[in-house]
Amino acid sequence: MQKNIILEDRCKELVVELGLGTSDDIVSAEPLAGGVASDIAVVDLGDHRICVKFALAKLKVAEDWFAPVHRNKAEYHWLRTAAEISPDTALKLLGRSEVQNGFAMEYLDGENIYLWKAALLQAQPDNGEAAAVGAVIGQIHAASAISGFDTSPFENRDDFHALRLEPYLRFTATRHPALADHLNGMADSLYASHQVLVHGDVSPKNILFRADKPVILDAECATMGDASFDVAFCLNHLLLKAVHMPALRQNLLAAVESFWRAYSAHINWETPEALEARVSALLPMLMLARIDGKSPVEYLSDQSRQQVRDLAAPLIENPVTRLSALTQYLDAKLEGTDL
Score class of each variant (00 low, 15 high):
119 A>S: 14
150 D>H: 09
141 H>M: 09
160 F>M: 09
127 N>R: 13
115 L>C: 14
152 S>C: 05
132 A>D: 06
116 W>T: 05
124 Q>M: 10
113 I>W: 11
156 N>Y: 01
164 R>I: 08
164 R>H: 06
120 L>F: 04
116 W>N: 02
136 V>L: 12
124 Q>C: 05
136 V>E: 13
146 I>C: 07
139 Q>E: 15
147 S>C: 01
129 E>W: 14
150 D>P: 05
150 D>C: 03
138 G>K: 08
117 K>W: 02
132 A>G: 05
119 A>C: 03
123 A>Q: 14
151 T>P: 00
119 A>Q: 07
121 L>D: 04
128 G>Y: 01
114 Y>T: 11
144 S>F: 10
109 D>S: 15
130 A>T: 04
123 A>T: 13
137 I>W: 03
151 T>S: 14
129 E>Y: 12
125 P>V: 04
108 L>F: 11
162 A>C: 12
161 H>P: 00
118 A>H: 13
153 P>L: 07
161 H>E: 15
159 D>N: 13
108 L>M: 15
163 L>M: 15
114 Y>S: 15
114 Y>E: 10
124 Q>R: 11
117 K>Y: 01
135 A>R: 13
140 I>W: 03
132 A>W: 03
113 I>T: 08
165 L>R: 09
138 G>W: 09
124 Q>G: 00
140 I>L: 10
152 S>H: 10
117 K>N: 11
132 A>E: 06
142 A>E: 10
132 A>H: 05
107 Y>Q: 02
128 G>H: 02
156 N>D: 02
140 I>A: 03
120 L>E: 02
107 Y>V: 05
164 R>S: 04
123 A>Y: 00
145 A>L: 03
115 L>E: 06
132 A>Q: 12
157 R>M: 08
115 L>S: 11
134 G>E: 06
121 L>G: 00
136 V>C: 06
123 A>H: 12
148 G>E: 12
146 I>V: 15
110 G>H: 11
130 A>V: 04
109 D>V: 15
108 L>R: 12
147 S>N: 13
109 D>M: 09
125 P>E: 02
121 L>F: 01
